[in-house]
Every structure is written in structure tokens, then in C-alpha cells.
Design a protein around this nucleic acid. Structure first.
Lengths: 192, 192
DNA sequence: CTCGATTGTCTAGCAGTGCTAGGATCGAAG
DNA sequence: CTTCGATCCTAGCACTGCTAGACAATCGAG
């Protein structure tokens, strides 16, 4: 029995190694550089080993995305917990979101841009994704305003943050005005 | 001379053929299906012909993007011109933007998601892209509010629209509430 | 302790990708 | 009619994600 347990543990370790290596490689050189050959060489196994853990490359991206979503939710909760007052909390939330996207571009892409084979906005949406949305909702429902559905408001606020994150990183928006855009966003959208 | 002119004309025709074929193929089967082999077969030339017109696949995507940006700018101007009153105009602008993204997903991706090798937010940004932003600015500067930089406001509004467009199309936002989100966006962001 | 069976891993290869070198072909100019 | 340059295609390169089949290590039964 103990032997089987050890093997299971080693297998789980290797699966984590694959995910973290894929993530590192993606952050260092972009997702284009995350080929099955590069990845297998970095983990010091052959390519077929990858396919004994994941159905294919998209599932590896999906695993990175789930890990990232968990971290994003935690980062959002940490930022809002440290802020005092509703306005400061929403500002902190927005900054934390954009900071996460800026500092983990590859992970952010895995969650929201790339096809990781993940379901969204349906029954079987993975838990980390629902939780990240919940983390947004927790702080935003307090500033949605009367008669406005909190979920709808959160969706809109989230969309705005997502647009700022992607357009900024793609070089479509000048990065130096980021803070002013966040202030304007919160001042207009949030009802304090 | 006339012979050379005819050849130049035929060359220009073929270049347009490549771009429109790439666009059609992308809208029908997604950009993944736009391979140099598929594309060359559809235009009934061999692959190297593509490379006599464009440096590579990314430049073809870029050409589709520029064509799309021109149409987007025209669609935005047509929608705002037909609307009366500042609020109706901004609503029409937002709807037109999201409609364009919904009805031309591949083109929208070419402009804003994919790497078409285009420069943004810098000196040598291609004219169609600057013009599309200008079309947004024309209607939005009137509702930016006092003391708010019109360009910054437009960037924020645009980012919100972009977020709504991409998240909706990726299945991250339920599509049936699109109109309500647009109304909320305009009610909150625009100062009438 | 030995010996099949099972598990785990790797080598080698497939079909597809973007892109290109070099030869064949064709039409205009002399 | 010949020459020569532009035009186009065939064939192939290095790469991609993915997989079949061979091989070796390990396990359990006798």
C-alpha cells in the first residue's frame, strides 16, 4: 500500500512540476514558447509523459488558468481586506486586479484569453473561476447602487477592468495614465 | 506602359483577393483554419504567391485588421449620425461597437486580439486605427464631464466596451443581458 | 528466488504548420 | 525568332501537437 501511495504522491508532484514549469516558461518567453518539446525537456521527461497527465496542451493551459484564478481571488480579497471605507476598497480592488494582470500576463492570458478548455457562465464552471468572480462581487455589491442588480454591476465593472488590462498590455493604452483611469472608473461607476 | 499598368492592377486585385479570402475563411472557420495552404488553395495560387504580397501570415492578419478598423469607424459614425440627443448618441455608439464585434468576431480579433504586427498608441499608428479612436472620441468628448480629459474618458469607455465585447464572445458573460449592461454603462459613465 | 504480467517510460514517427530556395514557364522586348 | 527577365510552382526545411509500439523496470504469484 505504502508503495502505491508513494507513487501517487510522486505522480502528483510531477503534475505540479508540469504546471509550474509551463507557467514559468510562459511568463519568461510567452505562451508561444511553451511547446510540448520545450516543456518536456525542462521537466526532464519525454513528451508522452505530458499526455499521461493531461489530454493535451490546452488542458495544461487550463491547469495554469485555474491555479492563477485561485491566486487572483486571494489577491483581490487581500487587497480589499486591507482597505478602509467603501471607496478605498473599490480602488484597492481595481488596482489589485490590474496589478495581477500586469505582473502575471501569461497567467492572465491563460485565464481569460487563451482556450484552456474551461467552461464559463454555466453550471459546471470550475470553482476557482466562480470564486474569483465572487471576490469581485463581495466588494462591488456594496457600491452597485439602488435598484441595480449586483451581479450585472459586477459584470460591467469586471469588463471595464478586463478591457483596461488587455488594452494596456497590448500597447493600445498608454500605461502612464493607468491610475487616472482607475480613479475615473471608480468615481463614475461606483455609488458610494 | 499599358501592359505594366494592367499587371499592377492585376496584382492589386490579387492582393485584395487574398485579404478578403482570409477574412471570409476566418469568419467561417476561425483564424486557426487560415493556414497558408488553405488560403493559397482558395485563391487558386501556390503558397509562395502569398509571400510576394505580404511578409508573412501576421501581415495578412494586419491587412484584415486595417480593413476592419475602417469599417468599424464608419459603422460608429453612421450609428451616431442617426441618433438625436447626447444620450441616444452614446447608446447608439455603444450598441454599434458591440454589434460590430458580435457580427465580425474574426475581424474584431484581428484588430484587437491577434498580433497583426500593428503599432498602437505611438507615432506611426496606422491611420484607420487612429480614425476608429477618433470616431469614438467625437461622440464621447461631449459627455466626458467637466475637468475630465476627453481622451482619457474615451480610453476608459472604450476599454469597457472592449471588455464587454471580448468577455461576451468568449462565453464569460451571459449574452441576454447585453442591453442592460450597455444602459448601465452609459448611465454611469456619461455625464449628460 | 524465479518468472510472467503489469506498469511506466522512451524512441521514432505522423500529419500538419509557416516559410523559402531553386528551377520551370511564359511573355515582352530587341 | 531569340533572348532575357519577371512570375510562379514544386519540393523541401524546421517546427508544431500528438501517438503507436518497443523497451525496461517493477510487482505479485508460485
Amino acid at each position: 500500500m505504502s508503495v502505491q501511495e508513494r507513487k501517487q504522491r510522486e505522480r502528483a508532484d510531477r503534475e505540479r512540476l508540469i504546471v509550474t514549469t509551463a507557467r514559468e516558461l510562459a511568463e519568461q518567453q510567452g505562451w508561444d514558447a511553451v511547446t510540448t518539446r520545450q516543456l518536456s525537456e525542462r521537466i526532464e521527461y519525454s513528451q508522452p509523459v505530458l499526455y499521461s497527465h493531461f489530454r493535451g496542451k490546452r488542458e495544461i493551459i487550463g491547469a495554469v488558468a485555474l491555479q492563477g484564478a485561485t491566486e487572483l481571488a486571494a489577491a483581490l480579497r487581500a487587497a480589499t481586506a486591507a482597505a478602509h471605507g467603501p471607496r478605498a476598497r473599490v480602488i484597492a480592488l481595481a488596482r489589485a486586479y490590474l496589478d495581477f494582470a500586469a505582473h502575471n500576463p501569461a497567467v492572465y492570458d491563460a485565464i481569460f484569453q487563451l482556450d484552456g478548455g474551461l467552461a464559463f457562465a454555466v453550471e459546471d464552471t470550475p470553482e476557482p473561476l466562480k470564486d474569483a468572480f465572487a471576490a469581485l462581487l463581495e466588494s462591488l455589491e456594496q457600491v452597485a447602487g439602488d435598484g441595480v442588480h449586483p451581479g450585472l454591476f459586477t459584470e460591467l465593472f469586471w469588463a471595464a477592468l478586463h478591457g483596461l488590462a488587455t488594452l494596456t498590455r497590448a500597447g493600445r493604452l498608454p500605461p502612464q495614465d493607468a491610475d487616472r483611469r482607475v480613479e475615473l472608473l471608480v468615481n463614475r461607476l461606483a455609488i458610494l
